[in-house]
Amino acid sequence: MERLNLSDAAPQGPGALPPGQGQPMMMPPGPPPVPQLPPQMFTTAAQLLDLTDKKLMVVLRDGRKLIGVLRSWDQFGNLVLQDTVERQFVHSEGKALWADIERGLFLVRGENVSLLGEIDLDKDDYIPEPFKEAPVEQVFALKKQEEAAKKGTGKRRNKKLAEHGFEGEHSGEAIL
């Protein structure tokens, strides 16, 4: 594959004249072209390249939050994460708690990724005020309760919607 750099100029189309051979005689139809950034900037690869070997917060489609170092990826957004921890948050019963669980190495299939965030190392692991670190067991138990409650309301809502002939938006999966 051609080794392109973000600072390279955009490649010339097959019909374009090589530089220094004069201006084309006719302008193409349509509005004058807007100055464009090089197209190789607008690829999945270019976006993920910047994030490689960085500490990332990965949010999965099921709501799980993983923190790890991005070591490898491909065009589908499949990811390899190293030294991953899963961070759980609960905010219920007037308590705001979080806990980390060591997980290790992950290969995440791209379709399950919702977003990747690069962690600002200046505010590394900053978690806003009411949240306090708690033992994993406590957070895990509260989380289970919270999810059960959510499942109940979700089911009721979908049932109501179904009565009116609608399908719930996340009926196929639990999105948290």
Partner: peptide, 17 residues
């Protein structure tokens, strides 16, 4: 709604699928 999504407080840039 930052309080609802505390996990993004230390994130500066995101790639959204």
């Amino acid at each position: 709604e930052e309080m609802k999504y505390p996990h993004l407080s230390s994130v500066k840039n995101v790639f959204i699928r």
